[in-house]
Amino acid sequence: MWVFWALLAAISAALVIVLTKAGLKNIDSSLAFAIQSVMILVITWGVVFFQGNFHEWRAIEKNAWVFLIAAGVFTTLSTLFSYKALSQGPASVVVTLERSSLVIAIILSVIFLKEKLTWQVIVGGSVMIAGAVLISLSNSRD
Rank of each mutant, 00 (worst) to 15 (best):
M1Q: 11
M1S: 14
V3C: 10
F4T: 06
A6V: 08
L8T: 05
A9N: 07
A10G: 08
A10P: 05
A13M: 03
A14L: 02
I17M: 04
I17D: 14
V18I: 13
K21M: 01
G23I: 04
N26M: 01
D28I: 05
S29H: 12
L31Q: 13
L31C: 10
A32E: 08
A32G: 11
A32V: 09
F33Y: 11
F33C: 06
I35K: 02
Q36C: 08
Q36T: 09
S37I: 09
V38L: 15
V38E: 13
M39H: 13
M39V: 15
M39D: 05
L41C: 15
I43E: 01
T44I: 12
V48P: 07
V48S: 00
F49R: 06
F50S: 14
F54M: 09
F54V: 10
F54P: 00
F54W: 15
H55R: 11
E56S: 15
E56F: 14
W57K: 13
R58P: 07
E61I: 06
E61L: 10
A64W: 01
V66E: 07
V66C: 05
V66L: 10
V66F: 15
F67C: 09
F67V: 09
L68I: 03
L68Y: 07
L68F: 07
A71W: 10
A71C: 09
G72V: 03
G72D: 09
G72S: 08
V73D: 08
V73R: 03
F74Q: 04
T76V: 11
T76I: 08
T76C: 07
L77A: 12
L77G: 08
S78L: 13
T79P: 07
T79M: 12
F81D: 03
Y83T: 08
K84Y: 14
L86K: 01
G89Y: 14
P90H: 14
A91V: 07
S92P: 01
V93C: 03
V94P: 06
V95D: 10
E98M: 12
R99G: 06
S101I: 13
L102P: 02
L102D: 07
I107T: 08
V110L: 00
V110S: 02
V110H: 00
I111K: 04
I111H: 02
F112S: 01
K114H: 11
L117G: 12
T118C: 04
V121S: 09
I122K: 05
I122Y: 02
I122P: 11
G125P: 02
G125W: 00
V127G: 00
I129R: 00
A130K: 00
G131W: 05
A132I: 03
V133E: 04
I135M: 07
S136C: 01
L137K: 06
S138L: 14
N139I: 10
S140N: 06
S140L: 03
S140E: 04
S140C: 02
D142G: 15
D142W: 13
